[in-house]
Design a protein around this nucleic acid. Structure first.
Length: 372
DNA sequence: CTGTGCGGGTAAC
DNA sequence: GTTACCCGCACAG
């Protein structure tokens, strides 16, 4: 299965970002041992790429990826295989006020994923749907991890044919927000409504009566939008607060700590030595809908700016009366295209030069504005 | 509760 | 034999 495609890829010796020849395959009995330089951790590996990471690399140790990858049993304890779960989108194909789409991270756990699909779109309350990854000959993209001595070998097969989901950290942050919101406003009419809908969906799914639910959903689109407005660093005022938020402004100090935890910064910054600059080869990006705040940023302690639209990560701009508003304040905010960015390529290094945001320096202030 | 890894099992090719 | 996928279990945070 997919042998032809794999053969083609395998026949081509390529050079990894660090210059190492990648004339190996993850299934080889013997993998290269004379690796002179290991690769910088790749958060969004795509296409048929191979990387050799240092076994000291925390992200590689954890087999992390910002794609939602689930464990797949390949009956080989030496090689860990993971397959892509795709991305969760809004069935209504709704857009936030700024035009961005909803790209949620599929829950990895099967049970949690089923539960997730019964939930509402955070933007329009419409039903969510899972877009499966079919980037590897109709099957999900697969990632392979193999630990050999001082190295961790990584190989990806297939090119993702769907938008990027939230990163793990974004998804975790969103969950935290929603939890907080639930605690703060347990009787929110909209939340209540959404739960009723979820409950109904749960019941009706078993009866395959889905479409009947959809007609009412659009009544619950939040009228509120900050539409890309940025707040003054010293201001905690939501541009929407006066117009449509009657609720209290909730300090997100605790949440802030969770999202931008020293741990996440430490993990990333400590392990990468300065003389090992990232030389990311931009992979194939079938679409780059969610380049806001990628996990790489978290890992590296940096924030991306999206040339095309905005600087706010997908999970932070979901506008709804249920979801809190995350307003990221940054004096560094600007949208400046990199002159070195070519075609579809995404030059992370250039991106960093232009954004120069240190995620660990509390340059950004998150504020929560529950709508009621 | 969710993520992660392991491994038994099944099915298709 | 290879690959995909389902399931349950254990463990961790």
């Amino acid at each position: 299965m997919l042998k032809a495609a794999d053969d083609i890829m395998d026949q081509e010796d390529s050079t990894s970002q660090s210059g190492e020849m990648t004339s190996w395959d993850i299934n080889d009995i013997k993998l290269p041992q004379d690796v002179k330089q290991t690769d910088w951790f790749q958060e969004w590996p795509d296409s048929y790429v191979k990387h050799i990471y240092s076994s000291d690399d925390k992200n590689a140790q954890r087999h992390l990826s910002s794609w939602a990858m689930r464990n797949t049993n390949n009956h080989n304890s030496r090689i860990l295989k993971k397959s892509c779960l795709g991305v969760v989108v809004c069935s209504n194909d709704c857009s936030a006020a700024d035009g961005r789409k909803i790209y949620l991270r599929p829950a990895i756990c099967d049970k949690a994923r089923q539960k997730q699909q019964r939930k509402c779109c955070p933007n329009c309350s419409g039903p969510l749907k899972l877009i499966s990854c079919r980037g590897h000959g109709g099957y999900p993209v697969t990632n392979f991890w193999r630990h050999e001595g001082p190295f961790i070998f990584f190989q990806s097969k297939g090119a993702h044919d769907h938008p990027r989901p939230e990163t793990k950290l974004e998804a975790e942050a969103r969950r935290s927000i929603q939890k907080g919101q639930t605690a703060v406003s347990p009787t929110s009419p909209r939340l209540k409504r959404c739960r009723e809908v979820e409950s109904l969906i749960g019941e009706m799914q078993s009866q395959e009566a889905w479409p009947l639910l959809l007609s009412n959903q659009e009544n619950y689109i939040s009228p509120c939008s900050f539409n890309g407005h940025l707040l003054d660093k010293n201001s905690q005022e939501n541009p929407c607060t006066d117009k449509c938020c009657n609720g209290s402004t909730l300090s997100l100090a605790d949440l802030h700590c969770e999202i931008i935890s020293p741990q996440s910064c430490m993990d990333s910054s400590i392990q990468h030595v300065p003389n090992k600059p990232p030389t990311t080869k931009a992979g194939y990006h079938p679409s780059r809908p969610n380049p806001g705040l990628s996990g790489d940023d978290f890992y590296e302690g940096k924030l991306h700016v999206n040339y095309n639209s905005s600087y706010i990560p997908s999970s932070f701009y979901h506008l709804s009366s249920e979801d809190p508003y995350f307003i990221m304040n940054s004096a560094h905010h600007h949208q400046q295209p990199s002159p070195l960015t070519k075609g579809n390529e995404w030059d992370f290094e250039e991106e960093r030069k232009y954004t120069n945001l240190d995620y660990c320096n509390t340059e950004m202030i998150f504020s929560l504005y529950p709508l009621r």
